[in-house]
Simulated assay, not measured.
Amino acid sequence: MKPIRLQSVNIKTPWAGDYLSNLRKLETGVGIVREVCAYKKSENSILNSEYEGMNLRDLISLHQKELMGDDTSDQMIRAAYIDAKEDLSIQVHPNQEYAEKVENDFGKSESWYVLQCDEDTSVIAGCNTDDQELLRHAAINGNIEKYLTRINVKPGDFIYIPAGIIHACGKGTLVMEIGSFGGVTYRMYDYGRGRELHLDKGFQVLDTSLSANKKEFPLKARNKNGIRTGVESKEFKVDVIDTIGIQRIFKENKYHIVTCVLNDCDIIIDKEKYCLHYTETLLIPASVKEYEIRGDCRILCSYRP
C-alpha cells in the first residue's frame, strides 16, 4: 500500500490566529486544522486517486491489514494544528473509563509540539490547589487562572497533556496536537465568549494531582541525525526525528504519521519520492517496512506503541 495523502479539515474558532492561514492560503478565522482524524463526522477525505470518494474511516475498514497492521482498531491517532491568536478555553478531557460509561466515546489524552510562538508565551497545564470547590467558585467568578499552572514554552518544546488534567493552549502559538481517539471536551472557563460550559462533568473527571511533562528539543541544537522520544503514553508515541542529509527509518508492522515541522524534506519509499513541505503530513501504512528521509529537517513520527 502506498503512502496516503489526506485532505485537511479546517475549523473556524473565535480564538484563531493567522499563521497557518497565511501559509496555506486559508480563509480567515481557521484555528484548527485536522491533519489526521478518523473520528465520527470529522474524518479526512483521501486525496489518492485510487481511493477517490473515500474518507479515512472507509480506508481503515476496507484496508485494515495493509494500513493498520496488527492494530485492529477502527480509529487512528489524531493529529491537528492549533493556531491561536487568543487563549483557548480552559478545559479538561475524560479518561477512557469515564468516556465509555458516560459519553459512549473514547478517552482523550494529547500532546502539544510548539512550532511557532510569541516571546514569553505560556500554556496552562495543571493546578496549584486540590480544592475543587475553590476551583468551581473561581471558574464561575472568572478568576480561575490564578489557581492554574502556567508553563513557558518556545519552539521545539513538547508537552504531554494526560486525560483529567486541566489545561489550555496559550495565545500566540502554533502547535501540532497529537493525541488519542476521543473527541470529548469539557469547557471549564471561556473568557466570556458565550459558549457553553460543562462544569459538572468537568469536575467529575478533573484530577488535581496531575502535572504536565515538558521536554525540550532546541532547534539550534540540531547538528546530526537523531531519533528521540517526544511523548510516550499507552495510547500513542511520538518520535522527534532530526535529519541532516539522509536518514533511513525501519519500522514494525505499524502505521506512521509523519509531519514535517522544520523546513521541507522528501520521503523515499520503494524509490518513489514524496515531497513533504513545512507543516505537511503523510500517512505511511503498516505494510511499508522502511523509508528514507532526505533533507535538513525535523519530522514528528506518531504511531501506536
Rank of each mutant, 00 (worst) to 15 (best):
F250Y: 15
R248G: 02
I246Y: 08
T229M: 14
I227K: 13
T229A: 11
V240L: 04
V240G: 04
R222D: 01
F236Y: 14
L219D: 05
K224T: 07
E232Y: 15
I244C: 09
T229D: 05
R248I: 10
K214W: 08
E216K: 14
V240K: 03
I246Q: 06
I227V: 14
R228K: 15
I241Y: 08
T229E: 08
D242N: 05
Q247R: 08
R222Y: 10
D239G: 08
K214D: 00
T229P: 05
T243W: 09
Q247K: 12
N225M: 06
T229C: 15
K214A: 01
E232N: 09
I227N: 03
F236L: 02
K220F: 13
I244W: 06
K214G: 00
L219A: 06
N225Y: 10
D239R: 07
R248V: 11
L219I: 10
Q247G: 04
I244Q: 09
P218I: 13
I241A: 03
F250K: 15
I241R: 00
E235P: 01
I241G: 00
E235W: 07
N225Q: 08
P218C: 09
Q247N: 11
E216C: 08
D239E: 09
D239T: 12
T229I: 15
A221Q: 07
Q247Y: 15
E216V: 14
K220T: 11
P218N: 12
Q247F: 14
K215Q: 00
L219N: 06
S233H: 12
I249F: 15
E235H: 12
D239C: 10
V240C: 03
K220P: 00
F250E: 11
S233M: 12
I227S: 05
